[in-house]
């Protein structure tokens, strides 16, 4: 349980460890992209953590990084192909960032720091915690950016629901800067500060 929760809050990959930032800021313009990216990362993270943990005795120490990279790249390609086949709209809006999951530091970092030293079960739990922590972080950023920057919340279309919630007032006159790159960096900075504040408040309570 501890392994799972630490990824969500205390070691949140985005706000605390500041890992995997490139995709975070680039795809967080729409909530639906954040969900898709999060799902992709969780899949790759679980897959690579399992494989690395299983193969930890087979992979020679000297070349462990290339071996991990091959494993991660395979899972990324699988996600990429599956997304193109089954979720084309998502695949086209994530663009090169699906392939860039391969250089997402979180995945190599967890393989190196956790999965190579622990058993399969713990590795899965670790991957889930970190992956969900990443997704939640991404969701928060994208929610702020999309609501302020476009005045919409884009989810999956289902039945009569077109998938886009328009926020009255903001939709007609959004603060467009939040959709653009400066907005992403600003939102990230202030959310990180907010996270710092929350963490320190928590710590004070514990003492």
């Amino acid at each position: 349980m501890f392994n799972f929760l630490k990824g969500l809050f205390k070691e949140n990959p985005i706000f605390v460890l500041a890992l995997g930032l490139c995709p975070t800021l680039a795809v967080s313009t729409q909530v639906v992209n954040a969900i898709g990216m999060g799902a992709g990362v969780i899949f790759v993270l679980i897959g690579s953590n399992i494989m690395v943990s299983l193969l930890k005795n087979f992979i020679p120490d000297e070349v462990h990084i290339p071996a991990y990279i091959v494993i991660i790249a395979s899972f990324v390609t699988i996600v990429d192909l599956l997304m193109q086949a089954f979720l084309p709209a998502l695949s086209s809006s994530l663009g090169v960032f699906v392939k860039l999951i391969v250089v997402n530091c979180i995945i190599l970092g967890r393989a190196e720091a956790f999965a190579s030293k622990n058993n399969v079960k713990d590795s899965i739990v670790d991957a889930l915690g970190m992956g969900i922590g990443f997704t939640v972080g991404l969701l928060i950023i994208s929610l702020v950016r999309e609501v302020l920057g476009a005045g919409t919340i884009t989810l999956f279309p289902m039945g009569d629901f077109s998938g886009v919630i328009k926020i009255p007032g903001l939709y007609d006159a959004p603060a467009r800067i939040f959709s653009l790159s400066p907005g992403a960096l600003l939102v990230m900075g202030f959310l990180m500060a907010g996270f710092n504040w929350l963490l320190s408040k928590n710590k004070n309570k514990e003492n």
Binding site: A18, L180, S181, P182, G183, A184, L185, L186, M188, G189, F190, M192, A193, G194, N196, W197, S200
Partner: peptide, 16 residues
């Protein structure tokens, strides 16, 4: 709470 990385992001935002 803005010390370190957060203020760096904010500065980066202004640069962008």
């Amino acid at each position: 709470y803005l010390k370190g990385a957060p203020i760096a992001f904010v500065s980066g935002g202004l640069m962008a």
